[in-house]
């Protein structure tokens, strides 16, 4: 039987910030494996290293020591320019503040990532429609971010993250700026994508609603993994 390989593998991952007199170990020797289709929440108090770990996994930052392998490719020593391309092809990001391009419409924001991937116009058009349909925003496709609500913007951000057909999606506090109902709708969307299309999500979050939906909860304390818990039965909020 073929061994199941992780899509993310970190080995003794450490990040030290030398910001002053005392170096700060934001991530401390973290080793973990994430497999295809997981719905994982990184939790922990503020300053526990959630975002830093997410940045290291996402290739936004270089580790001080240790390794990050994405689909067996070691990205920890990659040059910045190569990392940009790697992120484009392999990783989707959803940010707390949505971070859509304000001068582009919802449709263009989603299409933009595929344009960077140099996909054909036909393919882009088709995929944009599919994704807008998926996030239920077909009627808002020509609206700019300022014309959309926070929840709608975050759904566009999810669609943008999916547009590049990434290996996984990293979501940094995706519900932090949303009201309870909107956050619930967004989580429903991501849970459905995870369930129906086997899309891997890794969240950093404080939000109990996200934690309740997670299949796996990794708790960080002082940059180290304090607990790594598989949830047999996530809480169903619907």
């Amino acid at each position: 039987m073929e061994e199941k390989k992780p899509i993310i593998l970190t080995k003794n991952l450490t990040k030290v910030y030398d910001t002053g007199a005392v170096p700060v170990k934001a991530v401390n020797s973290v080793s973990l494996e994430v497999f295809k289709g997981e719905f994982t929440a990184l939790v922990g108090p503020s300053g526990s290293g959630k975002t830093t770990l997410l940045n290291l996994i996402g290739g936004l930052d270089h580790p001080t020591s240790g390794q990050v392998l994405v689909n067996q490719v070691d990205i920890s020593k990659m040059k910045k320019s190569a990392l940009i391309d790697f992120r484009l092809q392999n990783i989707g990001f959803v940010f707390q503040a949505y971070n859509l391009i304000p001068v582009l419409t919802a449709k263009e924001n989603i299409e933009f990532v595929m344009l960077l991937q140099k996909r054909s116009k036909g393919e882009r058009e088709q995929r944009v429609r599919e994704l807008l349909n998926e996030v239920d925003l077909l009627d808002k496709m020509n609206d700019r971010p300022a014309q959309l609500s926070g929840g709608q913007q975050q759904r566009v951000a999810v669609a943008r993250a999916l547009a590049s057909k990434p290996a996984f999606i990293l979501a940094d506090e995706p519900t932090a700026n949303l009201d309870s109902k909107t956050a619930g709708n967004l989580l429903d969307l991501m849970a459905r994508l995870n369930h129906e299309e086997n899309i891997t999500f890794i969240f950093s979050t404080h939000d109990q609603r996200v934690i309740d939906r997670a299949h796996r909860i990794i708790t960080l304390v002082d940059g180290a993994v304090a607990e790594d818990q598989l949830v047999a039965q996530p809480v169903d909020h619907s």
Partner: peptide
């Protein structure tokens, strides 16, 4: 915004 664009893969 530039940071975000670089993060999502803009060269």
């Amino acid at each position: 915004e530039f940071g975000v664009l670089l993060a999502i893969g803009m060269k």
